[in-house]
Design a protein around this nucleic acid. Structure first.
Length: 1007
RNA sequence: GCUGAAGUGGUGGAAUUGGUAGACACGUUGGACUUAAAAUCCAAUGUCCAUUAGGACGUACGGGUUCAAGUCCCGUCUUCAGUACCA
């Protein structure tokens, strides 16, 4: 009986489906385990072999946990809102829902044939109204919340309102906008409804604010930074301008500290934690307020070095700083305005990329030093960013390199406040540190001097004292700053969640949760309107009737009971920030809640999450934020969604290149029209051969080996002309990407297939190797359609089966590593599966017997159990595949037929190659699936050895091995080894200086 | 620049706490079977020297610690990823 993977895999996939084998239950005596993959965006191109890598790993782990007696939840779904479908809709008019539906069907078919143990009954789609109903609901919760810094959690906005009613806002310590005017209870109560709403927006966790965006008028849309290349749009090269827009934002900054602290409680890689830490960017320091001479305005700055306050010799404001226009003196006005205009033209990217150019302008104004009361010139410079801190810095040139460079460039004094005598070796403190070649930026081992009350103190002490003194003056306080910005939540797109928001007097109102979902309206086109409104501006039925609680026609808007609805939609990360909770609930019980309390309490959080590291600062941060909010508001009980997280590496494509002679080199014609017009391809092996020869030998080689080949294609005259080119084939050929499906495992081109691949190669000619083949060269690149290096898993499954694909993807290398795909190697794992099959079955059928296992059989089995279990626990799947191969090789040569050995072996392999394991399991006479059979138990007794093959080394170099009993004592080993003839031969009469004997390990003879 | 990860045969990669470097595969070469091909099986395969026996060298590079280093320490280089005038 042959290993008929096609039928086996089809049958078992059907069996699992029919029997709901992998359906998770929310009621179980078993401990729970939740394994999750980052769900895919269903793109039109379908899956390539890179996509399933993480899914296979998580599937192995999920199946392993089932064998280990866990109640496993392993769901899958689709992140089905997104740009590609919308882009396609704009081009073709096809509704994105239809495209999405088709793409999902393809994904599902492709996923199904790989044999994943997903519980599909719990699938979700973010674009499904039943799902986004709850995304909208969570948005409302954010709107109805504020962050109380005292209790350090989000609370109901009603609590804030009652505080305002009773005490005003002076006693409230909240995460809120910077520019809030203080008000009393009486003032609050006297506010109009609109005024109250305006104030509350500054406190809500999602709020409307003016945000600068990259607006592309030609495309009528906002572009992300990476959609802009050289100041114009990537698509179409249209101009892009910075524009202010009112948009929804998420006050994620309120959670900066908790997002940072939470990292210590979760099992993620340090690399990933570092990315998030850097992104949050915590810095501890002080805010300092400077008075401006001759003005009432004050300038706030943030500094991490309050200890260096006496080293301030100027201030720098970002050119966009709001005070610039007010404080600039008449003489400086022209210069300042010119500078501001020049910076505005440069994109933020340009400004950031260009670190070397130092530029700035003096405003003519002076600030007053809080302690010395000395005047401090105020400059503007684009090295100060408006978006970080307060957009202003107190410049301490002796302690900060950028300030130093700026001061040096513009001839501003650089007073020294560091006692550098022990560092620089100079005996005196220089009053001006012009001798300094660079700023002294270290905080360690240095004392402050020339600084009044800070003299003689170290960094820590001086910082504390400076903050204290600033507080006494009312001109500063200790402050912690975060780089983390609030996240813009509006998108001017169609294919996303609509906001449950309508506007009364320009103030946003939430639609009652009971009326959700607010479904996406139909539009006739998916483009922005002519007026630059988002695509929803084209909807005719997009107004909210407050009396009927219905979406009604726009014509009915009267601003009394019927109001306009929000035109923006939510971003891609909205739906993905909470989907892991939705899976916890059985599909049947999802109506009333996003997930029931029982389900949430049972599954708690994701035990193992697998996905790409590219989501480090997006999805993985936003979901943590939303989970913390939901916890604060009492909807869930966990602080962190993903306990353990593993990043799978990318699978790269192995591109193939053919080499075409540059036609002009062959061309001998005198007119353009009669030019040489045939493509001639030359085997890469010949190119390598020629290039490896010294110049003078090349001609001989060409005349003897290649001339005839060329003359069968071109004339003698043409050959003579291009001979020089043939001598330099690297220079005079063009490398072309060729579809990797036309290449066999020996890097040879399928010449006929290649001719048919593109019509312009129909008449191509080939300079082949002597065996008649064209060799291609290979290079590793990212898998992409345009590089013709995409490998479709469908083809692999058809040729070798899903089990082979699963094993091979794991066999390629460590999960986290980036690695190239090379289909050639798959025959190895496929051969292994055939060998495994043959261990159980021969021409006459099942050959497994009840024979007592031999000692060797048991040893092989148990060392395999041990290794595989360790490997899975360590996510080292590649090494367990090798272990299986070794086991099967050994058992084959041992001619093992013992059921006692082969049965547990099947269970070990079943997480990796579930189809063949199920098939053989049932052939062994078992009813039902192998998937929940107990994992074999390792018994160390089978691995106990009575003897050890000792490596005998001389000066650390292994020379021969010697088999000795395991229990032989040290001195006995030494005696035996020394008496051995090979030892005597090695020593050649010398007396060893030292003999190291490590029992059970090694013998090393020194001398 | 900073942060993180990684450099091992022709290729993908093994090597658990320092203890036989190159497991397991691919590829290549030779052989068996076959009319032939495929499939399968057997053998060899780090490099160099040597007929063999054997020897020298070898984990990016240069040092060091140790009886013993791919593994630990110091320095250098390269590649990849993240991030970037963060005050």
């Amino acid at each position: 009986m042959m290993y008929d993977f096609k039928n086996i895999e089809k049958n078992w996939q059907k069996y699992w489906k029919d029997n709901h084998t992998f359906k998770a239950s929310n009621n179980s005596d078993k401990p729970k385990y939740y394994v999750l993959d980052m769900f895919p965006y269903p793109s039109g191109a379908g899956l390539h072999v890179g996509h399933p890598l993480g899914y296979i790993a998580s599937d192995i782990y999920a199946r392993y946990k089932r064998h280990k007696g866990f109640n496993v939840l392993h769901p899958q779904g689709y992140d089905s809102f997104g740009l590609p479908a919308e882009q396609y809709a704009i081009q073709t008019g096809q509704h994105p829902a239809i495209t999405t539906e088709t793409n999902i069907a393809t994904y599902r078919r492709q996923l199904d044939q790989i044999g994943f143990s997903f519980d599909w009954s719990r699938k979700v789609r973010t674009s499904n109204p039943e799902y986004y109903k709850w995304t909208q609901w969570i948005f409302i919760q954010l709107f109805e919340s504020w962050y109380n810094n005292e209790s350090n959690k989000a609370e109901d906005i009603k609590i804030l309102v009652s505080k305002f009613e009773a005490e005003g806002n002076a006693t409230v310590n909240a995460a809120c906008d910077e520019n809030i005017e203080p008000f009393t209870a009486a003032e609050w109560n006297a506010f109009s409804e609109v005024e109250k709403q305006e104030v509350l927006l500054k406190y809500r966790l999602t709020y409307l604010a003016e945000t600068e965006v990259n607006w592309c008028p030609a495309l009528g849309t906002v572009l992300a930074n990476d959609e802009i290349v050289n100041g114009v749009s990537e698509r179409g090269s249209h101009p892009v301008v910075r524009k202010k827009m009112t948009q929804w934002s998420m006050r994620i900054s309120a959670y900066a500290e908790r997002l940072l602290q939470g990292l210590d409680t979760i099992d993620w890689t340090d690399a990933l934690k570092d990315i998030q830490k850097n992104w949050i960017g915590k810095s501890v320091g002080a805010s300092v307020t400077f008075n401006v001479n001759g003005h009432n305005e004050k300038i706030d700055v943030f500094t991490t070095r309050p200890d260096t306050i006496f080293g301030v010799s100027f201030m720098t404001l970002a050119p966009e700083h709001e005070l610039v226009s007010q404080i600039t003196t008449a003489e400086q006005k022209a210069d300042v305005e010119a500078y501001i205009e020049a910076t505005a033209k440069r994109s933020e990217r340009d400004r950031m990329a260009d670190v070397k150019t130092i530029s700035g302008v003096f405003t003519g104004a002076y600030a007053e030093h809080p302690f010395s009361k000395e005047p401090i010139p105020i400059w503007i410079g684009d090295y100060v960013l408006a978006s970080y801190g307060t957009g202003a810095v107190m410049a301490v040139p002796c302690g900060d390199q950028r300030d130093f460079d700026f001061a040096k460039h513009f001839g501003i004094p650089i007073p020294n406040i560091f006692d550098l005598s022990n560092i620089k070796g100079t005996s005196e403190n220089s009053p001006l540190s012009e001798e300094l070649e660079e700023a002294f930026t270290s905080k360690d081992n240095v004392k402050i001097v020339n600084s009044d009350f800070l003299n003689g103190m170290n960094y820590k002490k001086a910082s504390k004292r400076a903050i204290y003194e600033l507080e006494q003056l009312g001109q500063g306080e200790g402050k912690t700053n975060y780089r983390l910005r609030d996240a813009v939540f509006s998108r001017q797109r169609y294919w996303g969640e609509p906001f449950p928001v309508y506007y009364v007097n320009g103030m946003p109102q939430m639609i009652e949760a009971e009326h959700l979902p607010i479904k996406l309206p139909e539009v006739e086109k998916y483009l922005p309107t002519e007026e630059g409104e988002p695509p929803l501006g084209r909807a005719d039925v997009w107004a909210w009737d407050t009396t009927q609680s219905l979406v009604v026609s726009n014509e009915l808007i009267d601003h009394k009971t019927i109001f306009p609805l929000e035109l923006n939609t939510m971003p891609g990360w909205a739906g993905s920030s909470w989907y892991f909770f939705r899976y916890m609930e059985d599909a049947a019980n999802r109506d009333g809640v996003f997930a029931s309390e029982e389900a949430l309490n049972y599954w708690e959080n994701v035990d193992l999450y697998i996905g790409g590291s590219e989501h480090a600062t997006g999805h993985l941060l936003y979901s943590r934020f939303w989970v913390k909010l939901l916890k604060d508001r009492g909807f869930v009980n966990i602080e962190e969604p993903f306990k353990k997280l593993i990043n799978q590496g990318m699978i790269l494509g192995t591109s193939a290149f053919v080499y075409e002679f540059i036609k002009e080199k062959i061309d001998i014609s005198t007119t353009i029209t009669s030019g040489f017009n045939k493509s001639i391809f030359i085997s890469h092996r010949i190119i390598q051969k020629i290039e490896s020869l010294p110049l003078e030998e090349r001609e001989i080689y060409i005349d003897s080996k290649l001339k005839n080949k060329f003359l069968s294609i071109i004339s003698q005259e043409q050959f003579d002309k291009c001979k020089d080119s043939i001598k330099f084939p690297k220079r005079d050929t063009r490398a072309l990407h060729v579809d990797v499906s036309l290449i066999n495992s020996s890097d040879e081109l399928d010449i006929e297939g290649f001719k048919n691949w593109r019509t312009d190669f129909q008449n191509a000619e080939f300079i082949t190797d002597d065996d008649g083949t064209i060799k291609v060269s290979r290079d590793v690149e990212k898998m992409s359609k345009s590089k013709y290096n995409v490998v479709n898993p469908d083809d692999i499954v058809a040729d070798y089966g899903a089990d082979s694909l699963r094993l091979y993807e794991m066999f390629l290398g460590p999960l986290e590593q980036y690695k190239p795909w090379n289909t050639a190697g798959i025959t190895g794992v496929h051969g292994f599966l055939k060998k495994l099959w043959k261990l159980f079955v021969n021409e006459n059928g099942l050959k497994v017997t009840d024979t007592e296992p031999s000692k060797d059989n048991l040893k092989t089995l148990h060392k395999t159990i041990k290794k595989v279990e360790e490997d899975i626990e360590n996510f080292s799947f590649n090494t367990s595949v090798s272990t299986f191969m070794i086991a099967v090789n050994e058992l084959t040569s041992q001619k093992c037929t013992s059921k006692e050995i082969l049965e547990p072996l099947l269970v070990l392999i079943s997480p990796y190659a579930p189809h063949i394991a199920e098939e053989l399991w049932s052939q062994l006479g078992h009813e039902g699936s192998i998937s929940t059979v107990d994992f074999p138990k390792f018994e160390a007794s089978h691995l106990v050895e009575s003897s050890k093959k000792y490596p005998i080394s001389f000066n650390g170099k292994m020379r021969f091995t010697l088999e000795l009993p395991m229990d032989m004592p040290k001195d006995e080993i030494e005696k035996t080894v020394m008496a051995h003839e090979k030892t005597i031969a090695q020593l050649d009469g010398r007396t060893p200086k030292k003999i190291i004997v490590v029992p059970g390990k090694i013998v090393n003879i020194v001398g």
